[in-house]
Write a protein that binds this DNA or RNA. Structure first.
Length: 198
DNA sequence: GTTGCGATAGTCT
DNA sequence: GACTATCGCAACG
C-alpha cells in the first residue's frame, strides 16, 4: 500500500494560531490543507482573500452588522453566507478578535466520501463538477448556514494539516465574480489542478 | 469546448 | 427597492 500524504495515520487539526495572521498569508497557506465535514473531505486548491479595511469587495467593508459579526470575531471559525439567494459559500475567519478578515474557499479536490458527494450533487456530470466552485463544495460537503460561526479547531467541521512532503506551485490571479476592487490579485490557486474553478 | 441568461432570498440603503 | 464573493441548462461550434 502506498502512503498517501493526504491520509496520514494521525492527521493534525490546524491550531487557532494558524488563523491568527494576516488574511493574505492564510489564504496562501490554506492551499493543500484538507477541509473535513463528517465523512466527506477535500483538499483546498483555490482560495480568495477578503481582507476588509479599504477592500470594498469584502462583506466586512460595511462594518459590523448581523451578517458580518463573525468576520470581526475570533479567528478559526466559519463564515457561511447565502449567495445570490440560492447558494451557500464558506469562508474561514482570520486575524485577531476585533479585526475583520476572511478567506473564501473556492474549490476542493475530492478526497473522502466521493459516493456521498455524488448523491448530494446529482447535477454533477463528472467528478470534476463535484467541488470545483464555492457553492458546489458546500453542497458536496453539506456545509450550510447552520455551520456559520462553527469552530474549525474542533467538532465535525475542521481543517487538517496533511503530512509534509507534497509540493506544488501557487498561482495568483484576480478574484472572480466581483465588481468592486476587481483589480486586486487576491485569488490563490494550485497550479495545474483540474478542480480549480473556471 | 464556449457563451448567455434566469432563478432566488437575504442584506443593506 | 437595488444589489449580489453562483450555478446549471440550453444553444452552438
Amino acid at each position: 500500500m502506498e502512503r498517501n500524504p493526504f491520509r496520514p495515520k494521525k492527521s493534525v487539526i490546524l491550531p487557532r494560531a494558524f488563523y491568527n495572521r494576516p488574511t493574505i498569508e492564510v489564504s496562501r497557506d490554506l492551499l493543500g490543507k484538507v477541509l473535513v465535514h463528517g465523512p466527506t473531505a477535500g483538499i483546498i486548491v483555490e482560495t480568495e482573500a477578503y481582507p476588509g479595511g479599504d477592500d470594498l469587495a469584502s462583506h466586512s467593508a460595511v462594518g459590523i452588522t448581523g451578517r458580518t459579526r463573525v468576520i470581526f470575531g475570533p479567528p478559526g471559525h466559519a463564515y457561511v453566507y447565502l449567495s445570490y439567494g440560492l447558494h451557500d459559500c464558506m469562508n474561514v475567519v482570520v486575524q485577531p478578535d476585533g479585526l475583520p478578515g476572511c478567506v473564501l474557499i473556492r474549490a476542493l479536490e475530492p478526497l473522502d466520501g466521493l459516493d456521498i458527494m455524488r448523491s448530494r450533487r446529482p447535477a454533477a456530470r463528472t467528478d470534476r463538477d463535484l467541488t470545483s466552485g464555492p457553492a458546489k463544495l458546500t453542497q458536496a460537503l453539506a456545509i450550510t448556514r447552520a455551520n456559520n460561526g462553527a469552530d474549525l479547531t474542533r467538532g465535525s467541521l475542521v481543517i487538517r494539516q496533511p503530512k509534509p512532503g507534497l509540493s506544488f506551485d501557487i498561482e495568483v490571479s484576480l478574484r472572480i465574480g466581483i465588481t468592486k476592487c476587481a483589480d486586486r490579485p487576491l485569488r490563490y490557486t494550485i497550479a495545474n489542478n483540474r478542480f480549480v474553478s473556471r
